[in-house]
Amino acid sequence: MGEVIVITSGKGGVGKTTTTANIGTALASMDKKVVLLDTDIGLRNLDVVMGLENRIVYDLVDVTHGNCRLKQALIRDKRFDHLALLPAAQTKDKTAVNTEQMFKLCQQLKEDYDYVLVDCPAGIEQGFKNAIAGADKALVVTTPEIAAVRDADRIIGLLEAAELPSPKLIINRIRPDMVKTGDMMDINDMIDILAIELAGVVPEDQTIVISTNKGEPAVLDVNSKAGQAYRNIAKRIMGEDIPLMSFEVDETIFSKFKKLMGFKS
């Protein structure tokens, strides 16, 4: 029996889809059976990030409405046999699916897969409720900005209310140079404020843009820093104890100084 992990954020554009594609591909590259579930109905994206947009025949709504069998709608990845995508419907809206259907679908998928990764739409409405309906665990993605962290806080509250306790945090698009000059909140700042465990930190990285252009997740590029960060997160999900990468622990000179002087940072 596999595990259903929802990737959520509250705020849009912080990197949920990028994260789902990369963690999923990384897990598959480590021989796990993985299915990616795009629940952003009406704003389908995961297919393009994965480079699978030309293979879509059926979608999530076709499955929940019984227009096709689940197996028919699953698209097999180009690179890994045991990696599949269930695309979102593009022409319907979020009310086309309900939480009960999503729960059943997740139950069904986790019988065949080690990991079911659910890419959540932005917001806290029906789409969010659908995405978390069948989840066993949650990853919350944020960027080092006030608005994104604020929304992450809201989402963490909603996840706890929905009995999905102890979600883990992914901080995306961190810029070590700006953290160093004190112009970007650092990791400890965000962990402190949100009072949540860290799953990993992903740097701002051009290779994400390039890999998205090509439809090849950055984890496949051995030279990509973001790809490396996502591989580490995937290993942590598999239960390995992987230390943070250097940019994941960057501190300002001042906070080092404060520590030296015995101040609490």
Binding site: I146, V149, R150, T181, G182, M184, M185, D186, I193
Partner: peptide, 15 residues
């Protein structure tokens, strides 16, 4: 005066 500390304080209040 670091902008990250301004952000932190604003975030604390808003939360």
């Amino acid at each position: 005066s670091l902008s990250k500390n301004v952000a932190k304080e604003r975030l604390r209040l808003v939360l």
